[in-house]
């Protein structure tokens, strides 16, 4: 039970990678605060967690103005870990991007994470030796067409995490970023066709796409004391995709 008694916040916990991280952390004995926009889906995540009594849910859009107030009333103790997983994808060639899509993607993928981090640091809600993990994307190392705004939002997140790692290192707080390749979750199923997905598989040397549990294993490692000498890292987890 390597997370026994540890208090960990997970954003985007209603499905995919975030849900799997919650399940795995619960197995390790963590106390969880799960954030997501959809309460029903969050409750489903909670049901899938081994010890439901240690799971608090907060169904809010991270971009809502009253989000921070809602979090303040939910968050009584300081945190030992945060997983920033909430994300949004919209595929569009550059010739068709517009201000509202750019704002929407950056609000969710970048700004909300920056502002939540700011709030937690300012309110001293992060314990010494806590660990922060940002779920970014392999797109930041290896782009695909139609992905410019998403890629830019995640690249900005990488830069933020890198500077943050340096700032909070004196407090013993570690900050790392994971860069997943194509993981079979709903977020990507919506934007690619079956044919595109099959063709894309040829670009994965290990011969398969990722599963939420692949990424969750790395996230849990980075949250745990086993990774206590790793900070400021950006780690690809992509079945070899970025090598090709």
């Amino acid at each position: 039970m390597k997370f026994q008694g540890k208090k960990i916040l997970v954003t985007g916990a209603s499905s995919g990678i975030g849900r799997q991280v919650a399940i795995d952390l619960a197995l390790g004995g963590a106390h969880l605060i799960l954030l997501g926009r959809n309460l029903e889906k969050l409750e489903e995540t909670k049901r899938l967690c081994s010890d439901a009594a240690q799971v608090s849910l907060l169904a809010k859009d991270l971009n809502d103005d009253d989000f921070v107030n809602a979090l303040s009333s939910t968050l009584h103790d300081s945190l030992d870990g945060i997983v920033f997983n909430a994300g949004k994808v919209k595929v569009n060639p550059v010739a068709f991007i517009n201000r509202s899509d750019i704002d929407d993607i950056f609000d969710t993928n970048t700004k909300s994470n920056m502002l939540l981090t700011q709030f937690l640091l300012r309110k001293k809600k992060l314990n010494k030796n806590s660990s922060i993990v940002f779920v970014s994307s392999i797109a930041t190392l290896k782009p695909t067409v139609g992905n410019s705004v998403y890629n830019a939002s995640k690249s900005a997140l990488n830069g933020f995490a890198h500077s943050l790692a340096l700032e909070v290192a004196p407090k013993g707080i570690r900050v790392n970023t994971v860069l997943p390749g194509f993981v079979e979750t709903n977020i990507l199923g919506r934007v690619r066709t079956e044919g595109e997905v099959k063709k894309h598989l040829l670009d994965y040397p290990l011969g398969r796409f990722g599963k939420p549990s692949d990424v969750s294993s790395l996230v849990c490692f980075l949250l745990s004391e086993e990774s206590s000498w790793i900070t400021g890292a950006q780690i690809p987890i992509d079945g070899g995709f970025s090598m090709k």
Binding site: V91, P93, A95, F96, V145, T193, E194, E196
Partner: peptide, 26 residues
């Protein structure tokens, strides 16, 4: 190619306000 595919779907939305989801388009 894939860029043409994405661009055509995008311009249908821009010019004709028609959204065709990828499952239907394929």
């Amino acid at each position: 190619d894939s860029l043409a595919n994405l661009s055509l779907v995008a311009i249908l939305d821009d010019e004709f306000s028609v959204v065709i989801d990828s499952q239907r388009f394929k």
